[in-house]
Design a protein around this nucleic acid. Structure first.
Lengths: 233, 233
DNA sequence: CGCAATATTATGTCTGCACATAATATCAAG
DNA sequence: CTTGATATTATGTGCAGACATAATATTGCG
């Protein structure tokens, strides 16, 4: 069993994954410990550790101190969606990006959104509405609230020149956030700005970001029909 | 500047992240090299390496050999969607899960799906259709193709007893996969099985999984209206 | 000057060792 | 038997040193 040929941690990860995917080790099984595997592979324990940490990260094994490493019963599969700046999302498909700011005002936040952000009713935030185009076709309609209490600089920013999306990515680091996706029929505003009928299904993403306990921004993105979200498992 | 107090890699990561989020280092800036930082922090280079690798993983810095590490111009944010077994997804919201198998047959795969899976036209696969219920209300309608060439055991499985979804998670480890989300109006089958009108928008997920170069399963999940997908940033 | 060979440099990784930490197993006292 | 202290054990993390690798900078040649 002692294959002394396996030098690097990727090879070791590959070998361990092979044993899992080819069901040499079954769901729930206890794997040999790091020291044992290091001996088997003829490498240092740290190298095995690196490989096993990586596998645990991707959810195929569960590790517990003293408990050892087990093959996950129902591996938690994670889909990873990378969320680039909208300009880059458009440009990376070879299209020309353009952006039009329709609205920008300090307004009272609707009660529902206040609740969502755990803010007292009647709070005022900067409200922007804009449309991103890809090759002159509407790509996404963005309806955003920005918390000036946390980000006073945003009051000065020229969102016609640089989209709020991009400005915030560059200037507003956040610590946590949530992202909700749903399918909707466009409302009148969506239909107008995306130039579609109100009887086509569109993807709507609602994203909020927080800096510690303070909400920074809450945005609703209405994607033009036929847009899909592609993720890797 | 030499804080010798920072012992572990998480603290070092936190400190580096602080310098980035507090704009001590600006987008595009070149960071000090690992040796230099190790000296500053009074720790081993490996420890700095661990911290920087982790930060690079989460997209805030870009590293290139010889080139050094730069603060990312537009940090790519990632949303992580965990995809549990549908039964667990339902049960975790406190509802009773039930599952009805409507169809199960060896059939020729439609050309479009063959193409998607990079299989020759006319290939046959196991085709199943089923509905998952939450508290007796349709939750998701599942239309699935299973590649018996890779998973012959699936021919024997009783998908009425255990859903194909769950059986596959337990018995079919995969190495790669993709997950596509879109908004659609229900077709006749969706409307029938989900008991909804054809004029409501629904989320549709299409998921394929592969074991190395071999497609294992391809499933289309039509979610009942008002279902949303929640992800963490 | 342009180009190819070579040196330099920052990150990537491995090793062997050490100690820390968390969780379990064991055992003794009540 | 139950409870709590203690030993054991697997993983987590750290260190110093070494070599590997990739990319850039420099040098020398035609």
């Amino acid at each position: 069993m002692n294959d002394r040929s396996l030098g690097n941690w990727r090879e070791i990860r590959a070998e361990l994954m092979r044993r899992i995917t080819e069901r040499e080790w079954l769901a729930g099984d206890l794997l040999p410990n790091e020291t044992e595997l290091a001996a088997q592979f003829g490498c240092a324990r740290a190298t095995v550790n690196r490989a096993m940490r990586d596998i645990a990260n991707s959810g195929f094994i569960i590790r517990r101190r003293k408990g050892g490493s087990h093959v996950a019963m129902t591996p938690v599969r994670r889909a990873v969606l990378s969320i680039p700046v909208i300009r880059i999302e458009v440009e990376s498909s070879g299209k020309v990006w353009r952006h039009v700011l329709h609205h920008r005002d300090l307004e009272e936040v609707p009660p529902q959104i206040c609740k969502e952000l755990a803010l007292p009713g009647g709070t005022k935030m900067l409200h922007t509405k804009s449309v991103h185009f890809a090759d002159d076709r509407p790509f996404v309609y963005e309806d955003r609230w920005i918390n000036l209490a946390v980000l006073p600089e945003a009051a000065m920013a020229d969102f016609a020149a640089e989209s709020a999306n991009e400005w915030l990515v560059r200037n507003a680091p956040y610590t946590t956030g949530s992202f909700t996706l749903c399918a909707q029929l466009p409302d009148a505003q969506d239909a107008l700005h995306l130039d579609v009928s109100m009887s086509q299904a569109i993807l709507v993403a609602i994203r909020t970001t927080w800096l510690e306990a303070h909400p920074i921004t809450r945005v609703r993105l209405a994607y033009s029909p036929s847009q899909v979200l592609q993720m890797q498992l």
